[in-house]
Amino acid sequence: MTPIRAIGRPALAATRAIGAVALFALRGLAGLGPGSGAAIARQLVQIGWLSLPVVGLTALFTGAALALQIHSGGARFQASDVVPAIVAIGMVRELGPVLGGLMVAARVASAIAAEIGTMRVTEQIDALVTLSADPMRWLVTPRLWAGMLCVPVLVAVGDIIGIMGGWLVGTTSLGFNSASYIANSWAYLEAWDVTSGLIKGAVFGLVVTLSGCWFGMRAGRGAAGVGRAVTNAVVAAAVGILAANFVLTGLFFE
């Protein structure tokens, strides 16, 4: 009995937790109403616009490093001219969404958890309830939608900058001709490569904002409670992105 129980208990707890998070997400997404538009717009600035620099820099260096790696790796079987195509496909399908998502996780999941967590421990969320305002609608709904809407855009920007990073390295130090580098990038890229990456971005945006909201709303007492909420939110967002990426990649490309 005991070994079965030892497996059963955590499994049940995990199932319950997943169910609770899913319900939370559905309730959050369903909270759209009058005034949501303006609230989402404010969050788009916080989550999207202000993340542009970090996502752009990450993509630039990643694309550049990727070009160097593929050039030297490809040289082993006389295939260094695949650099443009592989940089483009690698950025758009995998690295753009995943690294962009992870950078947003670091910036945004923490900020959301800290803000909502502080509101929790200073009773601002209770105050919302006493003022007949639903905290889910006020705090969670705009963040979830903003995350889902703007991370794909960040991913698209990251894709372009990443490919530019590869192009910079390719043309300045790997001896590629600029026009043929660009032509080669396009030639092997399919629409689905791009679309799948953008869909990943939307899912990652939801994962990031959801974990920030979830842990923020559940922050324990005091500054320590907020600190724990922030840590948990970032860790959960990062692991959630990588796990979701694995599942989505399997779904999209197998």
């Binding site: 502080t118 509101m119 200073t122 009773e123 601002q124 209770d126 105050a127 919302l128 006493t130």
Partner: peptide
């Protein structure tokens, strides 16, 4: 209406 002990103003 409620006044919270710590005021709980929306910051």
């Amino acid at each position: 209406g409620m006044l919270f002990q710590g005021a709980a103003l929306f910051d």
